[in-house]
Simulated scan of single mutants.
Amino acid sequence: MNITFVHSTLPEDQYRVHIRCHNPAAAMQSSGRHTVHLLALEEFIHNSPAAVEVCASAEVIVLHRYLFENTLAAVARWRARGKKVLVDLDLSVEHLEADRPGYAFWRKGILPPLYQNGSRPVYPPPAEQLKWLFKMVDGILVPTPQLARDYFPFGRVQLLADYVNIHEYLIVPHQKRDETVWLGLNMGGQAFSSLKRSGVLEGIEQALQQSSRLNLLLVGVDPAAAYWLNRLPAERLEVFPVLQAEQIPSVLSKADLGLVPACGEFDVRQSPLPVVEYMAMKIPWIASNQPAFQGLAEYGRLVENSVSEWMRAIIRMANEIDTARQRAAGAPYLYALSQDAAENIEKIERAMRGFEEAG
């Protein structure tokens, strides 16, 4: 199969592009059975020579997320030439909170400068356009059953789970530091309002007050978190700004205990990938008791979303951290190995070919 993945180059999309485009593309290319190309969205929109080259040779074109009026001409052009065009939607545009990345685009029609064609917002906004633009593509790829149920009324849907490139995690040794326990919280792509509602932020604050051996490592900090951060002891914090996707494993590996909160309708539809990443580095984890993580309950600890539940779970697992580490190096680690994209190449192929079988 000859496949071209079309992806955004916006910083806020980079991590998800890495998971949804780079990882399956690398696995398919290395299998020796496929020819795979990656193409920037702006090249696709403007039908650049690079776009013509890789789309003309493709049998399948996978458009990550950005199905809206600016990509419609390109989609129609390549479908008219017999190409199958799929859209990969790995988020619920209907449930984006106002402080989550992508809200201004999907719900308000405010285009990033890179994709603007004039200064006015797109109307109707892209979230509304999707309902009829789905008819212009051959199928919809989604990472979770919850998203599949959302988009099923609008077109043919295939489930393509989030897979990791396990080698990115195996080369990163876990960095144990002294007798302290470092809590890891990746805020990248999260809505601060959702984190606050989950109770994890106050739970962390109370846990730090109760145990002097606890410290906090934060990744992808939202500016809205500044007030909360100022309430925490600076000497027990390590804060990283938004990172390149390939930098995330080396930073998260410094954590002794991963925290994965989820709260609200948007988070309900997300994949279990954040806990899989911790398992790939043999790091124990605590997550909200939400559908995304319930299937992995045997590999970690689930908590109800409240300040007291998060605080108690953090203190309890920190006190048992040596036992938790030993356990994380067993079945959870083996499960993470099974989530490597290369190990799931046949599932990736079936997802791509499922639309041929359906059509």
Rank of each mutant, 00 (worst) to 15 (best):
G295W: 09
G295F: 10
G295H: 10
G295V: 13
G295S: 09
L296R: 08
L296Q: 02
L296G: 01
L296V: 02
A297Q: 09
E298P: 07
E298I: 13
E298R: 14
Y299V: 04
Y299M: 05
R301V: 14
L302A: 05
L302D: 03
V303Y: 06
V303C: 05
V303K: 04
E304T: 11
E304A: 11
E304K: 14
E304S: 12
E304W: 09
S306D: 07
S306L: 03
S306Q: 02
V307K: 09
V307W: 00
S308F: 09
S308G: 04
S308V: 10
E309H: 08
E309I: 01
E309G: 02
W310R: 00
W310G: 08
M311C: 15
A313I: 15
I314L: 02
I314T: 00
I315G: 04
I315N: 02
R316G: 09
R316A: 12
M317C: 08
M317A: 06
M317V: 14
M317E: 15
N319W: 04
N319H: 11
N319Q: 14
N319D: 15
E320V: 01
E320C: 07
I321V: 09
I321R: 05
D322Q: 08
D322K: 10
D322N: 10
T323G: 11
A324E: 13
A324R: 12
R325I: 13
R327F: 06
A328G: 00
A329Q: 15
A329D: 12
A329P: 07
G330L: 14
A331G: 09
A331T: 15
A331L: 15
P332Y: 12
P332L: 12
L334W: 11
L334C: 08
L334R: 12
L334G: 03
L334M: 11
L337M: 15
L337Y: 01
L337C: 15
S338R: 01
S338G: 07
Q339S: 03
Q339Y: 01
D340F: 08
D340K: 10
D340L: 07
D340I: 08
D340Y: 09
A341I: 08
A341N: 06
A341D: 05
A342K: 11
A342L: 00
E343G: 03
E343Y: 03
E343K: 15
N344C: 01
N344K: 00
N344W: 04
I345P: 06
I345K: 11
E346H: 11
E346N: 10
K347C: 10
I348R: 00
I348V: 12
